[in-house]
């Protein structure tokens, strides 16, 4: 080792590496979540994907910094062989670095919290005073859906586009997890309790309901099909269903 590794100019390659890795992370963040995650069919899912993108972009410089530093350390300051290298110059404390690091992580955490709490409030905000109520009933290993006021019960979930839906979720037996994959909403179905979530489907087309809480033997197969249709189609479908008393 020469003293050149104490030379500030040699940090140039570290900053280059940091920059490049940050760009890689940002690109991954911009394209990864939206590419891999299911297409969004509700404002909640849109918010989820947006938050994923923002968090990834915010985390990119942090992860890139750690990777760049690690790679830089590995490139510059390693020794091979069976004999230990001589002692390095001891640096026990550096208040400025610690304070800077803590400040930056506090700021980043604050940003994540402010964004996250804002998004949570938006997620929970009710868009409408007159939502469509759907009772979701879980039983090992089938979902059924009731539309109160109509005596209709179905094992596939039809929803009208553009109207807020409030799901009243309960279970006949054990705990299940009600999850509309393309709408980014989840809540457990518990026996003896009604839990609620709401969302507003805003894209026409089919979607998936899956169980995301382990519920026994056929948990893997506890799925249901869903369809977002126009309000007219929804009324037609509802009228055509057998009425149950």
């Amino acid at each position: 080792m020469t003293d050149s590794d104490n030379d500030k100019t040699s940090l140039k390659s570290f900053f280059w590496l940091w920059g490049i890795l940050t760009i890689v992370g940002v690109v991954l963040g911009l394209y990864g979540p939206s590419h891999l995650m299911p297409k969004s069919m509700s404002p909640n899912m849109h918010l989820t994907i947006l938050t994923m993108v923002i968090f990834t972009v915010a985390a990119a410089p942090v992860a890139a910094g750690v990777y760049a530093a690690t790679i830089y350390v590995l490139r510059n300051w390693t020794h091979k062989g069976d004999e230990p290298p001589p002692p390095a110059k001891p640096v026990r404390e550096n208040g400025i670095i610690v304070a800077t690091w803590v400040s930056i992580s506090v700021l980043l955490t604050l940003f994540l919290l402010i964004w996250g709490l804002g998004a949570l409030a938006e997620d929970n905000a009710s868009a409408s005073s007159n939502p469509l109520i759907v009772n979701v009933i879980a039983q090992q290993w089938v979902w059924t859906f009731q539309y109160p006021g109509t005596h209709v019960e179905s094992n596939s979930l039809y929803l009208p586009e553009g109207r807020e839906v409030e799901f009243h979720v309960s279970s006949d037996d054990v705990t299940h997890g009600f999850w509309i994959v393309q709408m980014g909403v989840q809540v457990d179905a518990n026996p003896g309790v009604i839990t609620t979530i709401h969302t507003t489907p805003n894209v026409l087309g089919t979607f998936d309901v899956r169980c995301e809480q382990f519920c026994g033997l056929n948990h893997a197969f506890m799925d249901a099909l869903g369809d977002v249709v126009t309000p007219q189609q929804f009324s037609t479908w509802l009228a055509a269903q057998p009425q149950r008393t």
Binding site: Q140, V142, V174, P191
Partner: peptide, 20 residues
């Protein structure tokens, strides 16, 4: 599978034993 709770469990639902 069967959807009638015929499996005798202690308290929850009849989905134990043979059903599980």
């Amino acid at each position: 599978n069967c959807e009638y709770p015929c499996g005798d469990a202690r308290v929850s639902s009849g989905f134990g034993y043979a059903m599980s």
